[in-house]
Write a protein that binds this DNA or RNA. Structure first.
Length: 438
RNA sequence: CGGGGCGUAGCGCAGCCUGGUAGCGCAUCUGCUUUGGGAGCAGAGGGUCGCAGGUUCAAAUCCUGCCGCCCCGACCA
């Protein structure tokens, strides 16, 4: 992309409304624009990041055996009356009436819709396990939206729903999601820890929240240090084998956010294993059994010929929130530092002297080579001063900066800078391209 | 939803107390100079002062109501 033909409205000053660093940087870097409280438009750069996060989530869901669908944003109130949640949900649900006076709502989640789909088609235990997910906009009319897209009213969520014939099978489905989530966060360059969450009325131990560590996180997290260092299981585990050991290696170690914290258990650990940190909740998984299948009549016929209510779980990732959370976890004074997996562009080419034949030629050559290699470069070909280009490129956080100035061109070299470390080297163009392309 | 605060040019703000021509910086446009960390000079454009009502000869300014937005608390991807 040539910046002269792009739309990347960066700001020198953040709007006064924005308080936390990710919100300020998202506005300054031209990722989002607020349209109303908790409602945002995604500008080109922000949209690219959002799509990349979405794709990482999608790939890991698919790998773990989930199947993507797309459910509507607008749902029928009747389904929610069936599950009994229509009245419970209260003011957080945006209720709509259409021209026929039919009651609709903007979906805050999709248990009812997915259960309705499931019960319409799936009748046999032989079709299980099944896990259906979608990545769709949700609306929750929060009392107090804040912190930009971190807590918006409209937000993009990946929500997956598992269907199993019994609780043991549901646990296996749960375990798949548990480990898939760790892989998602690892690919996004985040340190994530699963903490035990309030399981609600169902009880049991199958409810976890995933907290990513960031100094500016909203909640306090207490955890066994090994849990962080253990990291993600990686893509190559046997997803339909026995995952219990991988999961219990982690769940056996202490981890809790402030509301579930058990100080006595925490203090009982060796001091050097106690870790206290700030975290941002970016995922929540839980098992809820027959909560929806029973009232909505989602049954399958079991091996014994008898119908049983299907056992369900649901698994949410805040995709749009992740964009902000990644920034909270990865930025510096100059701006955003995107992990390569979600960076809006793979590299930036900075022409420090647009109009200079040598600089133009080197930049065009670099731009073409990077484009051909699939790096998706952003070429700053604007007629602007070097300082402005450096500042803007740092701000938007592109991992590599290929800096082309007249002095270097005269000597046959360019400068290559890593955004994350600030490390620079001066080298011939070919070597710089090799370093980026690999 | 309770408490606090703010709405003046795209962004950041001053002006309001004490009513009288709507300002500053950045950004934008034109020209010249400049060119390795958000340039300089000269000029230009851009505003229903959130909305409505009231007081007044006169309202950004005073009064009333409404709307919007932000922050703190209780809840959530």
């Amino acid at each position: 992309m040539r910046l002269s033909r792009y739309f990347m409205p960066t700001l020198r000053d953040a709007p006064a409304d924005a308080q936390i660093v990710s919100h300020r940087l998202m506005l300054r870097a031209g990722l989002i624009r607020q349209e109303a409280a908790g409602i945002y438009a995604w500008l080109p750069l922000g949209l690219k990041v959002l799509k990349k996060i979405e794709q990482v989530v999608r790939e890991e869901m698919d790998r773990a055996g989930a199947v993507e669908i797309l459910m509507p944003t607008i749902q029928l109130a009747d389904l929610w009356k069936e599950s009994g949640r229509y009245d419970d949900y209260g003011d957080e649900m945006l209720r709509i009436t259409d021209r026929h006076e039919r009651e609709l709502l903007f979906g805050p989640t999709a248990e009812e819709v997915v259960t309705d789909i499931f019960r319409s088609y799936v009748k046999s235990y032989k079709d299980l396990p099944m896990n259906l997910y979608n990545i769709q906009w949700k609306f929750r009319d929060e009392r107090r939206p804040r912190f930009g897209v971190m807590r918006g009213r409209e937000f993009l969520m990946k929500d997956a729903y598992s269907f199993d014939v019994d609780e043991a099978a549901a646990r296996r489905s749960y375990n798949r999601m548990f480990l898939a989530y760790l892989n998602v966060y690892a690919r996004l360059g985040l340190k994530a820890i699963p903490v035990k969450a309030d399981p609600g009325p169902i009880g049991g131990d199958m409810s976890h929240e995933f907290m990513i560590l960031a100094e500016t996180g909203e909640s306090e997290v207490f955890a066994h240090r090994d849990l962080v260092e253990m990291g993600a299981p990686g893509p190559d585990i046997d997803w339909f084998g026995d995952l219990e050991p991988e999961v219990s290696r982690r769940t056996s170690l202490y981890a809790a956010s402030d509301e579930m914290h058990d100080a006595a258990r925490f203090e009982a650990m060796a001091p050097d294993k106690r870790m206290t940190a700030r975290g941002i909740e970016v995922g929540h998984i839980f098992y809820f059994g027959e909560k929806y299948s029973a009232p909505m009549g989602a049954k399958v016929t079991g091996p014994d010929g008898k119908d049983v209510n299907v056992q369900m779980g649901s698994y949410g990732v805040g995709v749009s929130r992740l964009a902000a959370a990644i920034i909270e976890a990865s930025h510096d004074d100059a701006g955003i530092v995107w992990p390569a997996s979600v960076a809006p562009f793979g590299a930036a080419v900075l022409n420090l002297r647009v109009g200079d034949a040598g600089c133009d030629a080197v930049c065009e050559q670099a731009y073409k080579a990077l484009s051909d290699a699939g790096i998706d470069p952003l070429y700053d070909d604007r007629d602007d001063r070097p300082g402005a280009k450096f500042a803007a490129t740092d701000l938007v956080g592109i991992p590599w900066q290929l800096i082309v100035g007249p002095k270097g061109v005269a000597e046959g070299v360019v400068e290559l800078k890593r955004r994350a470390t600030g490390e620079r080297q001066t080298l011939p163009l070919d070597a710089a391209l090799t370093a980026i392309i690999g």
